[in-house]
């Protein structure tokens, strides 16, 4: 069965992009056809990792200029995966970012349908797993992705503000849209492990608690850590998350 996962959080800088990227790598390593789409169009990041010299962007799809299958790149070569990894990039050019950030509600309503159609096209093109990297908080661009996904992976930094915000977004957005979801605590400090978020706190399972590790920043900047160092604690958490998502969706 195909699964579409939106990686989201109520605040910025929680590790959404790092987790989305590595989860995509992990699925591809397990033999799946995976498509990772950058839907954080206001602050795109995947273009810095995949040097595709692309002139086709997810933006073009959102503007109705072309189909999603025209803008995705096969990046599986040389990364050592038995499946396939495709990426759809958001245009990092500041003019493109300004352009898309100025769109109104009417345009966003259209964009929602475009993203839903894109999901169907990707499924028809043979993808097994579709992962949306999104922007933080309650914003049209991120919630359009959430509404299109089957599963929301919500990343929480274990601080008070982020925990309160996460509870709100689970009950006030994901549940209202009938989404299946899982929580990942990221950048946890040693002391946090004495008092981790419990499965009952949000009524949503906690799939992993990833410690804060300085080398992660360096190692997720240009490469897929889960593929380069599958035994790294960060990578192990990623594989664990992948396993838990499939258990939950069965």
């Amino acid at each position: 069965m195909v699964i579409t996962i939106a990686v989201h959080s109520c605040k910025g800088g929680t590790g959404k992009t790092s987790i989305a990227l590595n989860l995509a790598g992990a699925y591809a390593a397990s033999g799946k056809n995976v498509c990772l789409i950058d839907l954080d169009s206001k602050a795109p990041s995947l273009s810095s990792i995949f040097n595709t010299r692309s002139n086709k962007w997810v933006n073009d799809v959102l503007f109705g200029k072309c189909n999603i299958t025209d803008v995705i790149h096969d990046v599986s070569d040389g990364i050592g995966v038995s499946g396939k990894l495709y990426v759809g990039l958001s245009d990092p050019n500041i003019i493109a970012i300004r352009d898309i950030s100025s769109k109104d509600r009417k345009w966003q309503a259209k964009a929602l349908q475009v993203i839903m159609d894109a999901k169907k096209d990707l499924i028809n093109a043979g993808m097994d797993v579709i992962i949306f990297d999104t922007g933080p908080g309650v914003d049209f661009s991120s919630i359009n992705a959430v509404a299109t996904a089957d599963y929301v992976l919500v990343i929480v930094k274990p601080n008070k503000m982020c925990i309160i915000g996460t509870g709100q977004i689970i009950n006030g957005v994901y549940k209202l849209l009938g989404k299946n979801c899982g929580v990942v605590e990221n950048m946890c400090h040693e002391t946090h492990f004495l008092n981790p978020i419990s499965n009952t706190q949000f009524g949503v399972p906690v799939l992993a608690s990833i410690p804060c590790m300085c080398d992660v920043q360096l190692k997720t900047d240009a490469d897929i850590l889960a593929l380069n160092e599958p035994n790294h604690p960060f990578s192990e958490s990623i594989f664990k998350i992948m396993g838990q998502i499939s258990e939950q969706s069965d």
């Binding site: 009417k106 309503a109 509404a147 209202l176 849209l177 009938g178």
Partner: peptide, 24 residues
């Protein structure tokens, strides 16, 4: 009136939101 956007979808009463989500 515009096409249905996601924020409006969220603010619909439960029964209408379920119908609209299904139609999406």
């Amino acid at each position: 009136l515009e096409s249905l956007d996601v924020m409006t979808l969220l603010s619909l009463p439960d029964h209408l939101r379920t119908s609209a989500s299904t139609l999406f």
